[in-house]
Amino acid sequence: MESTGRLSTRILEHLRDPLVKSAVRVKSALLGEANNFLRGKGFVELLPTVVSPITDPLNHEVHNPKFRYYDQEYRLTQSMIFHKQLACKSFDRIFIVSPNVRLETSEKALSGKHLFEFSQIDLEIKNASRDDVMLLVEDLLASVITTIKESCKRELEYLSSDPLVPSRPFAKVKFMDAYEQYGKDFETVLSSSFTEPFWLIDFPIWEREFYDLLSDDGKTLKDMDLILPKGFGETLSGGEREWEHPRIINRMEFKGTDPEELAWYMEIAEMRELIPTAGCGIGVERLARYVCSLDNVLKTRLFPKVPGQSWI
C-alpha cells in the first residue's frame, strides 16, 4: 500500500505535468468536435446513467460491486448498452459521453490502455445496420482529427504527434480469418502492422455477449471493433442488437446468462417493446492516447485510476 505522502506527491506531479495538460486539452477538443459532429447528424445528447439495477455483463472477468439503496439493488454502470437500446424508443439517434466504471483485474495495469474509470462516446441509432454505424464513425474520426490538427497545433507539437487523417473507407478484417492466420494475439499483430484504422468484423458467437445480433449463418455476429494502427489497438466496440425475446433467451442460454439478472429489461423484451438498433461505444481515453501518440491512457486524465494500483 503506497503511503499517503508518496501518493499526494505523485498526484501533484501528475497535475503539473505539461504533457498531461497538453493531452487533456486535446481530449477536450476531441470531445467538443465529436459533440458538434453528432449534433450536426441529428443526434440527441442524453445524460449518462451512472448506477442501475442492470448493466452490461461483459464478456471478460471484472469485479462487479453491488449496493442496496432502500429496497433496490444497484450496480455500477459498466456500459449503457441496454439503456441506449431503450432510448431509441424516444429518439431515432442518441449519444452520451458516458462514464464507465469497470473494476478490471490487476494484470491489465501495465497494458497502457486500461483504466477502471474511463469514458465512452456511446451512440445508438434506430433501425440502423452495422454498415450505417461504421460509415458514421469513419466520418466522425476523420472530422475529429482534421479539426484537432488545426485547433491543437501547439499541444500536438509539444507531444511530437502528427495524427494522420484516415482515408475512407476503412479496411475490414474478419475475426476468424485473422485468428486462423496469426493466432490468439492477432489483434496486436495487425494493429502493429497497419498504418491506418481498420475494422475487425464478424466475431464468432462465443466471443461476445448475448445482445450482439446473430447473423443468418448462426455462427458469427453483426458486430465490429475499430482497431487503431501502430499498436494502439481497439478503441471501439459495437454492432447490431438482438431485439426479439425468443432470440435473446436462446443467446442467454448459450452464454449462460441468468435472465433474472436483467429482469425489467427482459420483461420489456417479452412485451415486444424492444426495437432494432445498432450502435457503438468509442473509448475516449484510448482515442486521445492515439491522437497524442502517448504510451499510456493514464496521461489523458488528470485523475486516472489504473487497475490494481493506488492512484488518484
Rank of each mutant, 00 (worst) to 15 (best):
G233M: 08
P259E: 09
K89V: 07
F198K: 09
F82K: 07
R168D: 07
D132G: 04
S119A: 14
H83K: 11
E244V: 12
K230H: 12
E196W: 00
F116H: 10
E73H: 03
D132A: 07
R168W: 10
S151T: 15
E124V: 03
P65K: 09
N36E: 15
F37R: 01
V62R: 02
L115H: 00
R289K: 15
G5K: 13
M224A: 15
R154A: 14
F95V: 08
F91M: 03
P18Q: 08
E61I: 15
T220S: 13
R25P: 01
V284P: 00
Y70T: 12
L76Q: 03
N64D: 15
P307N: 02
P307I: 06
D56L: 09
R208M: 05
A29E: 06
I205L: 14
P48Q: 09
F67Y: 12
R286S: 02
H14W: 13
A128S: 11
L38N: 05
L226A: 05
S143P: 10
H245D: 11
F186H: 06
W243S: 09
P229M: 10
T195W: 08
F67V: 07
V284S: 04
R39H: 00
L140F: 13
D258F: 05
L86A: 08
S22P: 07
R10T: 06
K84D: 05
I227R: 03
P276K: 10
L103V: 15
G42N: 02
S151A: 12
V297L: 06
Q309T: 10
R168L: 14
W206V: 04
T9G: 00
W264V: 06
H114N: 14
E33R: 12
R168T: 11
Y70R: 12
F82E: 02
N36D: 14
F95H: 06
Y290E: 06
I312G: 04
I11Q: 00
M266N: 07
L214E: 05
R289C: 09
T77H: 00
V284E: 06
I282S: 00
A34L: 11
A29M: 07
L140C: 08
P229V: 04
D139V: 04
R93W: 02
L58T: 13
I121C: 05
I248H: 07
K255S: 01
F194N: 07
Y74D: 00
Y290Q: 03
L135D: 14
A269D: 00
G231F: 10
L19S: 04
P48I: 00
W206S: 14
V133R: 03
L190W: 01
D258G: 02
L287I: 14
D258H: 07
S143Y: 03
F82Q: 04
E187L: 02
L136G: 03
E150R: 15
F170M: 13
E187D: 07
K108G: 02
G112T: 09
